[in-house]
C-alpha cells in the first residue's frame, strides 16, 4: 500500500517510492540518503509527537513529520 512516511508507525519497514517537495530541505534529505528505492525502518516518534527517527542505510536520522509527508513509501511489513 502506498502512503506517506508521516503515516507510518514505529516498527514499520518501508521502501521509498518517491521524494517530493523541493528546495534545500529536500536536497538535504536526499544527501542524507533518503532516495528512491532505499529501505527505511521507522524507529520512533519524539516524546512530544514530532519529529520522527528512522534507520536508513545503516544509521539513525531524524526529521520532522511535515517533511516526512513529502516522502511517498510502500510498506514492506509491520
Amino acid at each position: 500500500m502506498e502512503t506517506t512516511l508521516n503515516e507510518c508507525r514505529p516498527g514499520d519497514k518501508v521502501v521509498i517510492v518517491r521524494v517530493g517537495g523541493e528546495g534545500p530541505v529536500k536536497r538535504r534529505l536526499m544527501d542524507m540518503g533518503i532516495t528512491r528505492g532505499a529501505e527505511i525502518l521507522v524507529r520512533k516518534v519524539a516524546p512530544m509527537g514530532d519529529p520522527i527517527e528512522v534507520n536508513i542505510r545503516g544509521y539513525e536520522l531524524t526529521f520532522r513529520k511535515a517533511d516526512a509527508s513529502n516522502i511517498m513509501i510502500q510498506k514492506l511489513e509491520s
Binding site: P24, V25, R28, L29, M32, P51, E53, Y59, E60, L61, T62, F63, R64, D67
Partner: peptide, 9 residues
C-alpha cells in the same frame, strides 16, 4: 530552519 539531523550511535 528545517530539522534534519543524524543521531550518531
Amino acid at each position: 530552519e528545517a530539522f534534519v539531523m543524524e543521531l550518531p550511535p
